[in-house]
Design a protein around this nucleic acid. Structure first.
Lengths: 127, 127
DNA sequence: ATTTATAGGTTACAGGTGTAAACTAAATAT
DNA sequence: ATATTTAGTTTACACCTGTAACCTATAAAT
């Protein structure tokens, strides 16, 4: 996964979410239907976004009767890559700094901390 | 602090960093000098970026002999806002989810976890 | 006094982004 | 067979971003 990922724009991510949620390749009709509920985009807009995603190499289009679109990166990969990018830019590359900042700004409440403590134990074990 | 903050671009953040580091308002000459070490920007580029930051309302310019530029948001505010934005977009608004993901992707090593455990205790106490 | 450097203002321009219309071809409905 | 819908392709266009030139006025240097 290369830097292309960080260049997926907000609008394009909307399309990716549809594909990620589906978990399988989709024809454009299904993508349109899925988006109808959450957006007001014209068909041509959706097509433009799909085209750009293909150009960026993060979606593939396979011609059957019609094209079927499939994400080439997973949502998790995208999230992790984007997060690392933030960590590099704002927290000197240290995930620990980020977590410390979350604590400092009270973004984690007592409950969160309890649950994370448990996770920390697991993490400790299998490293 | 409004959404303007999330629209500070990469180049603009470079300028903000100079102002944040200085901790006081600076005339353009000092900004230029500070940037000379880390960038190849022409003077006019720096001026354009300062102008855009002023237009976005995140930097003020006060005319004395020459203009003095001052950030209207702090680096911490910026970092926290940007981080919250990421959390909202990628982690359903849950900072805990983000931390859990960092653990899952091994971005935190045993040492980090030890240090965070200590912080967690402090956080617990003063909440 | 004249050259040189700098500040401030205006303008530029290519590439990216959000959003979409227009056109063509094929499929479906009547 | 004709009208309507949809898929795919091409083109558009305004705004944003990165980067900078140009112009004018003033200040500093010689």
């Amino acid at each position: 996964m290369d830097k292309t990922v960080s260049k997926i724009t907000d609008s394009e991510v909307e399309i990716m979410r549809v594909l990620w949620k589906a978990g399988c390749e989709l024809p454009i009709a299904d993508i349109r239907k899925s988006l109808k509920e959450s957006s007001e985009w014209e068909d041509s807009t959706i097509k433009t976004l799909l085209r750009r995603l293909c150009e960026k190499g993060v979606v593939s289009a396979a011609k059957k009767e019609v094209f079927y679109y499939k994400p080439l990166i997973s949502e998790t990969e995208y999230n992790e890559y984007t997060t690392q990018n933030l960590i590099d830019r704002l927290y000197s590359g240290s995930a620990k700094n980020l977590v410390a900042s979350l604590l400092g700004s009270k973004k984690l409440n007592r409950n969160d901390i309890e649950e994370l403590r448990t996770l920390f134990k697991v993490g400790d074990r299998d490293e």
